[in-house]
Write a protein that binds this DNA or RNA. Structure first.
Lengths: 144, 144
DNA sequence: CTGAGGTGGTGAGAGAGTCTGACCAACTCG
DNA sequence: CGAGTTGGTCAGACTCTCTCACCACCTCAG
């Protein structure tokens, strides 16, 4: 795992670079109360809302941890919880107004970083990268 | 950041898949006292030894955090600290005997996972993936 | 060769994030 | 209906990370 850079580490480096940039951009846009852990959960909320258990599973954490983070996101106004009409036990976590604005801000940063990467790699290789990663997702993402 | 899977998340998914597999493999091989945080530091120790400050910078954490993790790694026998002949203040963190064995074990798991990915993507695209990521490293890895 | 500023590292304390174990309420289905 | 499953919470503990403060050693200009 040490010497010859393995693919795992090669994946991690740009991932962290992207994450860092998004956090900087978010903070600059006034969304400075956003922790990495919160973001990793927030990122997975479906547009129609998601259950806590789903979020926990997709983020790879326990439902207790997810609940803890969603509590914070709710207090900060990023999300809201509404009863799930389909299941009396469950509540749906949905993106609230402030959350939607933060999504927009982060979307802009992502586009900016992707543009830089494209400038460095070239259109063709950037597209290849995306294609290959999407393909790889089939065997590395348990959630479809 | 939410709907259309951005490249950041696409990178993260296989990264985490790799990490999970390596941890499972390590635990199965008797290296069960290894936390993700420790591993992220351990992974960056150069074969000639590294200074704490270097490790901290490369892992993106404070030197105090790095010191905390190296303490644990040292107690578990994965690394050892030796005085740096070139600088009286510094000490070099080096991989100890048990650490070397764990590197070997993780190397096997990495090879196994890479083989699975190659089987899924094909030789050519796997090589492209590695090439593109290596290239991308130039603008996303501050450490060369 | 000496003193100022930089660098390598440690210590203490606090806060965030995560986990396990125990539990309750609502759902599903034979 | 009753047994088992699933969505979620509560409590407590541990790990990781940070900031602030500090010391020891190094470097280099004067």
């Amino acid at each position: 795992m040490t010497e010859a850079l393995n693919v795992g580490l090669l994946l991690f480096l740009p991932y962290r670079a992207m994450e860092t940039r998004v956090f900087e951009g978010l903070a600059a846009a006034g969304f400075d109360d956003f922790t990495p852990a919160q973001a990793r959960v927030f990122q997975r909320i479906a547009s129609t809302g998601s259950r806590l258990t789903e979020l926990a599973a997709q983020a790879g954490i326990t439902k207790q941890s997810a609940g803890f983070l969603v509590d914070q996101l709710e207090r900060a106004g990023y999300v809201e919880r509404v009863p799930d009409p389909a299941d009396g036990r469950a509540r749906l976590v949905r993106i609230a107004e402030r959350g939607a604005r933060s999504v927009e801000a982060s979307r802009r940063v992502v586009a900016e970083v992707e543009a830089e990467w494209t400038a460095h790699l070239g259109e063709r290789r950037m597209r290849q990268l995306r294609d290959i990663l999407t393909d790889l997702r089939e065997i590395t993402d348990p959630w479809r």
